[in-house]
Write a protein that binds this DNA or RNA. Structure first.
Lengths: 195, 195
DNA sequence: ATAGAAAATCTAGCAACGCTATAATGGATG
DNA sequence: CATCCATTATAGCGTTGCTAGATTTTCTAT
């Protein structure tokens, strides 16, 4: 029983292995989704990809939906960071434009990731008390853009988000031609800076 | 061979039967989707619902996706009509508001229908030359709101659509609380009328 | 009216899916 | 080294979208 030292080492190594494999699974899922679409991200396919049997995946995530949800959370994290970077790098008056560009760039460069965050059926509500902090973080970046500048900053941030999401989604699903994208950004920025 | 008369009657009846059954299938699909979600709209379930075997559905629509696409087209038709009605019933200066309300009302009252139109993976592009007229019709209603009032009416209409779609989608997927919806409409209308 | 052609419909089954009970295997502990 | 316990694999269940082939029904033509 005096070997709590070695025992800890072993436990740590096991934990690292677990996390490494978890990351491996998520990486494989994202790669397949981005290249071949989410329907091709099957549990069997993933278990092939990581050279483990299917039950291992269920030990990690409980269900296929659990895997997609984990990827979505990663996505929200990354989106939040991208928006934060864009906002902090720019001057006060051009912040809205920078953030808009960063948002649409994110959605355009990782369409499958964006899809799993918003378009697939999984339930990742925001208002609930158990909302992961990664999700709040992204929206807080939008909120800060209007904080103080207007009485109804929250509604403005929501609408700004809705506009960007609408553009991203209608572009991703081929409803908007990609050609006029720059002009769309210009006008939406105009709308949200003149208020 | 002189009976082209009776032959025509028979052909007509068969056509009517076909269309009636087609409508029956779509009605069943929409009902199940609205009550239990699209994953529960299986081909077997539908074949049960209309008391025909599965291959009959494939004779009509070719695939499950074909059924969903047909429902989506119905949805675009109905959305277009709703927007047209809203626009024509209102005065010039309140048209934007009426259309915005009609759009969000449509999305909120038939969430599954709205979902299949926009959120599910099916490919119903707009720009393509084979785009069904039902799809163009809906957007033309939005376009007319800004026609003539601004040089870049098309971009404005696209952004108005994107904003409404973003609100509808973020509300449907529980990202927005339904409580502030009225205020959102007020502000979005403000944004798009002051330009 | 009835036999034969054609159209419509059903039965039965395949491959692939998400998921899980159970068996086999491996590493840590005394 | 023996024994446990955690980890991993095998194998299978029920359901899915879809389809080939058998079967029945409907129309046509004598």
């Amino acid at each position: 029983m005096a070997e709590t030292l070695a025992t800890n080492r072993i436990a740590e190594r096991k934990l690292r292995d677990r996390q490494a494999r978890r990351a491996q699974i998520l990486r494989a899922a994202r790669k397949i989704a981005e290249l071949e679409g989410w329907p091709n991200v099957t549990v069997r396919r993933l278990s092939d990809e990581i050279s483990y049997s299917q039950p291992v995946l269920y030990a990690h995530f409980g269900s296929r939906e659990g895997i997609l949800t984990a990827v979505a959370v990663e996505g929200f994290q990354e989106l939040g960071l991208a928006l934060e970077k864009a906002r902090k790098r720019s001057k006060r008056e051009s912040a809205v434009e920078s953030v808009a560009e960063a948002y649409l760039e994110f959605a355009a460069s990782s369409p499958a990731l964006y899809e799993v965050m918003f378009s697939l059926g999984l339930s990742v509500p925001f208002g609930a008390p158990d909302t992961p902090p990664e999700l709040r973080f992204g929206f807080s970046q939008l909120l800060e853009l209007f904080e103080g500048r207007d009485a109804k900053a929250e509604v403005l941030a929501e609408l700004f988000w809705a506009s960007l999401h609408g553009i991203a989604e209608l572009t991703r699903t081929k409803r908007f031609p990609r050609s006029r994208q720059k002009e769309r950004v210009r006008v939406v920025v105009e709308l949200f800076t003149r208020s």
